[in-house]
């Protein structure tokens, strides 16, 4: 099959960017979207032109590095799928595809389709952990965790930190990401000791980074490759509220 790509090109954060058009010829439906970009890049390099810069690493949907907005939808719109797991069988021959980077003030473009998502790291650094040092921890079975609680914490912990929630949100809000992390740890008995502090500090950092606010549109949940539920945002709202009312 043949595809036409309209790709955002931008040399560096300061440069002005724009769309360029490329033809992906003779690609096959079994190929992944990124493998198709690899083919385009191969041709560009062989022709002495700069390849399209994009992030990817594990290429199996878990590292969270890949981050393309494909035809207006982060990760391309297949349910529970990252860009790297998206295969060309979901496109048709002759289709024109627009490829853009994540767009948010907190995720500035680094080059072409690569953005800087270190804001997420700083949010975790503000409180996305349990304050335990290595060593001296009790036996793993000393803290029973009800299966339902462990499962729910795991649902939240499945977040891969890709930032698609921010990219799709009309407000560029990072609530789903932050809520997933707050919920993962606040649900578990191990995380209860610093539950209030965690919610307050992580939200503070999130606001500081310049993400937008949640208006509960639910589009984050719809594009999340790990299908993380909007209900975790409610959980964070509750935890933050309780912590605030306590005057912490």
């Amino acid at each position: 099959m043949n595809l036409t790509l309209k790709v955002w090109r931008q040399k560096n954060p300061r440069a002005a960017g724009g769309f360029e058009t490329y033809e992906a010829k003779g690609v096959t439906p079994e190929m992944s979207f990124l493998e198709m970009l690899d083919v385009v890049n191969e041709e560009l390099i062989a022709g002495g032109r700069d390849p399209i810069a994009f992030d990817s690493d594990c290429r199996e949907g878990i590292c969270g590095m890949c981050s393309l907005v494909i035809n207006g939808i982060p990760h391309g719109g297949q349910p529970g799928t990252t860009t790297c797991e998206l295969h060309l069988r979901h496109f048709h021959d002759g289709q024109t595809i627009t490829v853009e980077p994540w767009r948010a003030k907190a995720f500035p473009v680094v080059r072409d389709l690569i953005t800087n998502r270190s804001a997420f790291d700083r949010i975790i650094q503000a409180g996305g952990f349990v304050s335990v040092n290595t060593g001296g921890t009790p036996d793993g079975n000393a803290i029973p965790v009800p299966k339902t609680t462990a499962d729910r914490a795991m649902d939240a912990a499945a977040c891969i930190g890709c930032g698609a929630c921010v990219a799709v949100c009309k407000n560029a809000s990072a609530m789903l990401f932050v809520a997933a992390k707050v919920s993962h740890l606040n649900l578990l008995p191990q995380g209860k000791a610093e539950k209030d502090r965690r919610a307050l500090n992580m939200v503070k950092q999130m606001d500081h980074e310049g993400f937008g606010n949640c208006t509960v549109t639910g589009s984050c949940e719809a594009v999340c490759p790990k299908e993380i539920s909007l209900s975790f945002i409610a959980k964070m709202n509750r935890d933050y509220g309780v912590a605030t009312l306590k005057g912490q």
């Binding site: 349990v130 009790p138 029973p144």
Partner: peptide, 22 residues
């Protein structure tokens, strides 16, 4: 064994039995 204890304390959501044990 220490690794499992460490990871549990950090909040790694290992699979559990209904009784709450690993």
């Amino acid at each position: 064994s220490n690794i499992i204890d460490q990871c549990v304390a950090q909040g790694v959501p290992f699979a559990r039995e209904y009784g709450g044990l690993l």
